[in-house]
C-alpha cells in the first residue's frame, strides 16, 4: 500500500514540476527541444527510481533541478568524448509558432556558450541560485562557478549587447 501512496506522490510531483523542468532543459540545451525532452525524461526517471529518498529531501523541486543539471552535463561529457567538435546547434525554432525574436536571440547566444557556462547561467539567472548553490548543483567549487559566470556574462554581453531587450527588437 505504501508503494501505491508513493507512486501517487511521485505522480503529483511530476505533474507539478515537469513543465518547469522542461523549460529549464530548453534553456540548458539552448533551445534543442528534443534533447530537452530526453533530459527531462531521464531526470524524471531517476527521480522515480529513487523517489523514496527524493521525497524526503527538504526541497524535492530544487533537487530535481540539480539532477537535471547533472544529467545535462553528463550528456555533454559523453557527447564530447564520443564526437569531436560539436559546434552545430540545432534550429532554435520549434515550429510551434511561439518563437519571439527575444527567444531566438537568447537561445542563439546561449548556444554559443560552453555547456558548463550555460549551466551556470541557467542556475544563477533562471533558477535564482546563489553562487554556492550553483557550485553545489554542478559539483564544482564556488571559485570555478564565479569564473564561469563572469566569463559567460562577458560573452553574452558581446552577443546580446548591453540592452538585451533592444537587441531582440527587429
Amino acid at each position: 500500500m505504501r508503494q501505491a501512496a508513493r507512486a501517487d506522490e511521485y505522480a503529483e510531483f511530476a505533474a507539478a514540476r515537469t513543465g518547469h523542468l522542461y523549460r529549464s532543459a530548453c534553456l540548458l540545451t539552448a533551445g534543442d527541444t528534443h534533447l530537452a525532452e530526453d533530459l527531462v525524461q531521464e531526470t524524471l526517471g531517476r527521480l522515480y527510481v529513487r523517489w523514496g529518498r527524493v521525497s524526503r529531501v527538504d526541497n524535492p523541486a530544487g533537487y530535481a533541478q540539480t539532477v537535471l543539471t547533472r544529467t545535462f552535463l553528463a550528456h555533454q561529457r559523453r557527447r564530447s568524448s564520443r564526437e569531436r567538435a560539436v559546434e552545430a546547434f540545432p534550429d532554435v525554432a520549434d515550429g510551434s509558432g511561439t518563437d519571439t525574436p527575444l527567444r531566438l536571440t537568447l537561445m542563439q547566444a546561449l548556444g554559443r556558450l560552453p555547456a558548463k557556462d550555460r549551466a551556470v547561467v541557467v542556475l544563477r539567472y533562471w533558477e535564482d541560485r546563489s553562487i554556492e548553490e550553483t557550485a553545489g548543483a554542478m559539483n564544482a567549487s564556488s571559485a570555478a562557478v564565479r569564473t564561469r559566470c563572469s566569463r559567460a556574462l562577458g560573452r553574452l554581453r558581446e552577443l546580446l549587447g548591453e540592452d538585451i531587450g533592444e537587441s531582440a527588437r527587429p
Partner: peptide
C-alpha cells in the same frame, strides 16, 4: 536584464503533454 529575458524566453516553452508519463516509463 538577463534574468528577466530568461524568464520570458524560457517561460514560452510549452512542455509536451505526455512528458511526465514518459519520465515514469523511463524510470521503470
Amino acid at each position: 536584464q538577463l534574468a528577466v529575458a530568461l524568464r520570458e524566453a524560457g517561460g514560452a516553452f510549452d512542455s509536451p503533454t505526455a512528458l511526465a508519463a514518459a519520465g515514469r516509463a523511463r524510470g521503470d
